[in-house]
Amino acid sequence: MRPYQIALKNLIRRPARMFFLTVALAVGLAAVVALVTLSNSMTADIEHTMDQFGANILITPKSNDLALSYGGISLGRVSFDQRELDPSVLERIRTIKNHQNIAAVAPKVLGTVTVQGRELLLVGVDFAAELRMKPWWRLTGAEPSAADDALLGNSAARVLGVKPGDRLTVGGRSFKVAALLQETGSQDDGLLFVPLAAAQAITGKQGKITLIEVAALCSGCPIGEMVEQIAGVLPDARVSAIKQVVEGRLQTIGQLKRFSLGMGGVIALIGLLVVFITMMGNVNERKVEIGIFRAIGYRTGHVMGIILLEAGLVGLVAGLTGYLLGVGAAAVTLPLLAQSGHPHLLLQWQVALAAIAAVGLVSLLAAVYPARRAGRMDPADALRSL
């Protein structure tokens, strides 16, 4: 009878012990696989959400004249009257090394205007880029597309008493209120948005830009590198990252990954001890059987091979079972933790291979000493217990 046949028969002959050993290893592995799969899936989900979140890089002129806050975000110090950006910077932004990570570039011109006796902050924008950058905006009316279309914030519309379709006179120019911005809870509610060229003419800033918002795709989130690259091509501008947009969401994921690695180490140690104790007990119970093998000519390597093969088979089954259990647990838990409404479970073949290989390796390492002890067993000592 070949060694692998002996190993299989021994496993079948002791089903209860091997079943509980397999379950112990599988449950431990399932916990680690679930945590790793959850962290990877949540990272991918957050990156997808971040791609739709909006600006995470701000570009403003270098100035010390006036502090400006826009949308609840501090933009640094900006001078409306003296320091502006040249439109050529838009092309230079697209030349950086990580230009493929740029989702949208939204230039803006800001200025104060009087409308129906009320002072409003006028924001000139490229509506196509702005609407792409702010997918959370909800409009009442049609998307602005014409050169005389305007978008009015919810609070500003209420103060002015206007509705979609009404016309407003701003700086001597007539604009049609194409849509109203539904309440966002931000400074956008009190703003008047018009096409960039029209705002430049009204504010006397033809060919000038007050600030630029950049939405960066967050696959890998190279925000810091992109800020340095943009600053390199725009030496006269202040480039800053809204770090909390990236770091605030990925910090928890990093903690979960570190916890999963730490938990994996603890479970590996426990699994090592469980397999070691089980295999030592198995060897002690099979003294007679091992003595017979040695007496009929089985060499040390043959006996060790039988014990290691048993441990390896248990590890393989436990690895497959644990991986499937872990993926199932992650699939159930992910919708409760994800940022988006329809998270996608990220399955990676590397995780499957690593999980199965790790359990197999732990099982083999734990069985090495029992196998060596069995292989070196004196046939005469073993047969005396008959």
Rank of each mutant, 00 (worst) to 15 (best):
A311R: 08
L11R: 05
A156K: 00
F276I: 11
M133N: 01
Q251Y: 09
A129P: 07
M226D: 05
S155L: 13
Q5F: 15
G220D: 04
A216F: 01
M42V: 04
V314M: 14
R158S: 15
D86N: 13
A156T: 06
L217Y: 14
V274I: 09
L120W: 07
I270A: 08
R158Q: 15
L273D: 10
G360F: 00
R286G: 11
A215Q: 13
L151H: 03
G111K: 07
N282K: 15
V362T: 02
V362E: 00
N101V: 07
R249Q: 11
G190I: 05
V194T: 04
P87H: 01
L256P: 06
V239M: 01
A199T: 07
E310C: 08
G172I: 07
V36T: 03
A371W: 08
Q187H: 00
S63A: 07
I102C: 13
G54C: 04
L365I: 06
V109D: 13
L269P: 04
E130N: 06
G224M: 08
V314D: 14
G312A: 11
S385G: 15
A146Q: 10
N10E: 14
D166Q: 11
V246G: 00
D149Y: 02
R372T: 12
A268E: 04
L313D: 14
G71M: 02
F193Y: 03
E47T: 04
Q116K: 15
A150K: 03
L256W: 04
L211Y: 01
I223F: 02
V362Y: 03
S74C: 12
T49G: 08
D45S: 02
F175C: 05
G360P: 03
I270P: 03
D65Y: 12
T278N: 12
L181A: 05
F193Q: 00
G305S: 10
V314N: 13
V288N: 15
T140V: 11
N40V: 15
L364Y: 05
Q82T: 08
V245M: 00
V246K: 04
I253Y: 08
A201N: 09
A7D: 07
P107L: 07
D86K: 14
A331N: 07
G76E: 05
R167E: 03
G315M: 05
L383S: 06
F80D: 02
R372M: 12
E130K: 05
V351G: 11
G190N: 11
K176Y: 09
A338R: 02
L191C: 05
F20M: 09
V368W: 07
L21Q: 11
L192E: 02
M304F: 13
Q5E: 15
A26C: 09
R118A: 15
A178N: 03
T203A: 09
L309S: 13
L75H: 09
T169W: 06
L269N: 03
G315T: 10
R132G: 08
